[in-house]
């Protein structure tokens, strides 16, 4: 058994919220630079160039890359040999988010109730996904999610007979409908299988995978490559103003499912695809 104090969780989550909003991760940064090299449209190149300037200003002046600093989504992978001492774990996580959004001058974008809509003024609560894993470490992934792209995400409950072609159509439909609203170039996170809620979580988790990494399952990897090519052939381009860079990556996660179903979730993220991972 290993003891972890919840103060350590709070401190890390605070720092991770700030880090995610000021600096793009290395994989995303590289993908954005590559996109500028390969983009064919003049206006698309101009936009990608301005997005490079934007990243530089955010980094140097400690201004959030985007004013929508997101709703904080946090994946907690907790080794089953870990014992938490201190506060209730969930309170410690929310406190980290609260401190990060306050001290980092990040926007408070969360309302307490979806209908009554009163701002909580500290960006809590975060959406937290817990899982118990082997070992004695805690792996934390902080992925603040902006809602321009979140609003364009979809779940499709396909039939088994729809097969892989149905999956491809679902993904292309979601991306086409998202168009300029999702701040392309986007990253497309896809979950296939499981149940209604499982495929959505798979899709969200897929967005936290490095954009230069593919699935280890050969057919899934091929699907990722094929769809990226097809999406970039849609012509949407940077800012949705026409071009050859509509997506930087398609990340697909799969899971077992029921004999009667083929759930597909498409979680779209803008070019500010934020994900910071720490293991403590």
């Amino acid at each position: 058994m290993r003891k972890v104090h919840t103060q350590e969780i709070t401190k890390n989550i605070k720092e991770m919220c700030i880090e995610a909003n000021y600096y793009l991760s290395k994989d995303m940064d590289y993908a954005m630079k590559q996109a500028f090299e390969t983009e064919k449209s003049e206006i698309g190149r101009k936009i990608l160039n301005q997005l490079q300037d934007n990243l530089k200003i955010a980094d140097e002046e400690k201004i959030p890359i985007c004013q929508d600093t997101g709703m904080a989504v946090i994946f907690m992978e907790i080794g089953q040999q870990v014992f938490f001492e201190g506060d209730f774990l969930e309170d410690a996580i929310q406190e980290g988010v609260r401190q990060g959004y306050r001290e980092g001058f990040l926007r408070k974008s969360v309302v307490k109730d979806p209908i009554q809509r009163e701002n909580t003024k500290d960006n809590t609560p975060a959406v937290i996904h817990y899982s118990i894993v082997t070992g004695d470490k805690v792996k934390i992934t902080v992925a603040p999610k902006g809602f321009g792209s979140e609003n364009m995400s979809r779940v499709f409950m396909l039939k088994p007979a729809d097969g892989v072609e149905g999956v491809k159509n679902a993904i292309l439909t979601a991306v086409k409908d998202a168009g300029p609203n999702a701040c392309p170039p986007m990253v497309v996170g896809v979950g296939i299988g499981g149940t209604f809620e499982k495929c959505a979580i798979l899709a969200k988790k897929a967005l936290t995978r490095q954009v230069n990494e593919h699935s280890h399952i050969p057919y899934v990897r091929e699907l990722e490559e094929e769809l990226l090519k097809k999406i970039n052939g849609l012509g949407i381009g940077p800012g949705g103003l026409g071009g050859t860079t509509t997506a930087l990556a398609v990340n697909i996660n799969t899971f077992a499912t029921h004999i009667a179903g083929l759930p597909v979730a498409v979680n779209i993220c803008c070019h500010v695809n934020r994900h910071v991972v720490r293991e403590i």
Partner: peptide, 13 residues
């Protein structure tokens, strides 16, 4: 008009 989505730091200048 469209401004560039996700370029909040640049536009703030």
């Amino acid at each position: 008009f469209a401004a560039i989505g996700g370029a909040g730091a640049l536009l703030s200048k």
